[in-house]
């Protein structure tokens, strides 16, 4: 609603750099140096004051692997996954919980990782698109997205698939209407919605059998 109003110009975030500027400024710096910590790489942290006084120890399991992380409490789960753990399947779309591209599962429930402070995953199990099927196989939902041409550019697809798997597991994929309602948190700017709904309808019974 009010969000759709014209937004102020790009300099609205004060002295902060955009992600593009951060990446551009890094220039020829070796890749390892570009990805030091989630905090440093996170665009909305970059232009602000330096590091937090204290990091927080977090023990979490990500895609079945136990992780022991020292985190700046400002870091989002999305940034930790992408910048610290090189799990780049979850995508940064809006970074404000409005598009669903960053959807992952925490303890089996779908959430937006951009609005999840990573410190809140202590003791939790996180599953990303990289963790839904063994390396050499596709999850039935992934196969269904291919079969139904449920994407064009593909940027929203990992989030769509993570949301879709949860949608089926919750029991919210019993009709097209219900799929549309319970998938409304995942925006596809290419407009592949018809294929997405068809893919979920197709994968739901296969997931139940599996």
């Amino acid at each position: 609603m009010e969000d759709q109003q014209p937004r102020p110009p790009a300099h609205r975030f004060g002295g902060e750099l955009t992600r593009r500027e951060v990446v551009a400024a890094a220039g020829a710096v070796p890749l390892a140096a570009m990805l030091p910590t989630a905090a440093a790489a996170q665009s909305h942290l970059a232009g602000r004051t330096g590091h937090n006084e204290a990091t927080v120890t977090v023990r979490t399991v990500i895609n079945g692997t136990p992780r022991h992380l020292e985190l700046d409490p400002r870091a989002s789960l999305l940034d930790v996954l992408r910048e610290q753990l090189a799990l780049t399947g979850a995508k940064k779309g809006c970074d404000h919980g409005q598009c669903g591209a960053c959807t992952v599962h925490i303890d089996g429930r779908r959430v937006v990782s951009c609005l999840t402070p990573a410190v809140q995953t202590d003791g939790a199990e996180v599953t990303t698109i990289e963790g839904i099927a063994p390396d050499d196989q596709l999850h039935p939902m992934q196969q269904a997205f291919i079969d139904h041409d449920a994407l064009q550019c593909g940027y929203c697809t990992p989030g769509q698939i993570m949301a879709a798997i949860a949608c089926v597991q919750e029991g919210h994929a019993t009709s097209r209407e219900q799929i549309r309602e319970y998938m409304s948190g995942n925006i596809c700017r290419c407009g592949a919605y018809v294929g997405i709904v068809a893919a979920i309808e197709d994968a739901a019974p296969k997931m139940r059998r599996a």
Binding site: E2, D3, G97, G100, V111, V112, A163, A166, Y182, N186
Partner: peptide, 25 residues
């Protein structure tokens, strides 16, 4: 969305702040 509803608490929801763009941006 279902993702946000899986995260958001009932108490916190009462205190959700306005979406006025002039406030947010």
């Amino acid at each position: 969305s279902q993702q946000l509803r899986n995260m958001a608490s009932l108490g916190g929801n009462l205190l959700q702040r306005t979406r006025c763009a002039y406030f947010r941006f």
